[in-house]
Design a protein around this nucleic acid. Sequence first.
DNA 1: GAGTGGTCTAGACCACGCA
DNA 2: GCGTGGTCTAGACCACTCT
Lengths: 249, 249
Amino acid sequence: MFDKFLLLLYKTFKLTDLPQYKKLYELLRKHIEDGVYKEGDLLPSENELCAVHGVTRPTVRHALDTLVRGGYIKKHQGKGSIVISQAKEIGILSIQGTTSAVGENKLRTKIVSQPKIMQWPDHFFFELSDVEKESGCIFMERIRLVNNVPVFYDITYLPNINLPRFCNRKFEDRSLFEILRKNYQIEVTGGQQRFSAIPANEEISKFLEIKKNKPVLHLERRIETSRNNFVFYSCLYCNTEFHALSGTF
Amino acid sequence: MFDKFLLLLYKTFKLTDLPQYKKLYELLRKHIEDGVYKEGDLLPSENELCAVHGVTRPTVRHALDTLVRGGYIKKHQGKGSIVISQAKEIGILSIQGTTSAVGENKLRTKIVSQPKIMQWPDHFFFELSDVEKESGCIFMERIRLVNNVPVFYDITYLPNINLPRFCNRKFEDRSLFEILRKNYQIEVTGGQQRFSAIPANEEISKFLEIKKNKPVLHLERRIETSRNNFVFYSCLYCNTEFHALSGTF
DNA sequence: GAGTGGTCTAGACCACGCA
DNA sequence: GCGTGGTCTAGACCACTCT
């Protein structure tokens, strides 16, 4: 009974609005990224996590499942949850943005064109809703460098819907995903992507500092978020000569 | 009490050994693929599925979660679970093999070299365990054609461990995943993949009927299965001019 | 308001890996 | 034999969508 009262109290004042499993997920993810748990380490057992965080097993399992999907851990029946290697390649295919996914290498972000508000391009590479079309889009171009070598050329399109002061923010060396999360409470929840191999055109070869017509990996991504009906788009060209893109499925 | 007795009976005689959520998943997946539920259709609600199949909600939810991960449905709070479009592109990135993932198009499989037992190549593209190395590998090459145009050139390496009569089976126009499932009770559970864009060499250009040096998508995949320690490998070259590869994340 | 999916509890038994 | 993760039950309350 007293428990019920506390629960009511907690919910009334909304000390935090993230669900429990997500809070646990974020905590463990942070610990893995910060190296508290290293590659090959065993996470605490599910029962331990239950006890420590005061939740039941399904909740803990939900958090761990999310870590599995994100490619952070691998579960082994009878053994436990093992932290997997942070990809040596660039794990852009998982749910994280690029910034958190390049292991040992130094990743920098260079802004080619600051975000600016404009019309959506004609013949956009994904279908747009009427609301999106009417709102116009925020357009930005970035180059990602790994160890000072350009590897990605990334064109991002966001719908211009309720993103106050977005164009004035500092993006240099900061993750777009992080900015969306911290400043707008927008979390990436999933998406679709299309892969193809194309020859580098004039522009791409210039940005990636490679010869014209050299094969580059082309990605078109539609990225869904926790904000209702808010999706954004990214068109990405990647020089895979030194860094393959990798992911789990 | 009587329920408990029935459960015991059922488990003793193992009428089937798939877990409930997986049986429900397979059933719904089959219905979606067979067109019982079409794109945009609403699946029965979770409570309905509980009642119809005699399981509780967490079990139903587990099955639906698996469908979401496989890219079959999308859930909308307050509305229901909606069947999503079967990718018009080739959804090789999801957990299915290529055969079940090409929508309207006709997909055929041509065998370049029948499976044969041999040594693993030197400098294999993923790290091999000692057991794998000692067992040798089963090697096969296939070409996938979409509407009679070659799109994939697929080299598969399986560890030669307990796969009786594998080399004598008919692979023409059959899915490897299906053969593994039906004949060996091996289910694909996940894996890793690396993407890069490379110029087609002599051999690739011949198999895919394209010009030499044309950009092709290169995939190296490590595919994990439900059989303990049994993983296999695939090296794939794809002409993405007419069919982008697509997937969800 | 009725129905949907989202989150969560408090238990239970099982299969697996290891010592 | 013990602890691990895997599966499952039988409930509960919530937020969301539709009408």
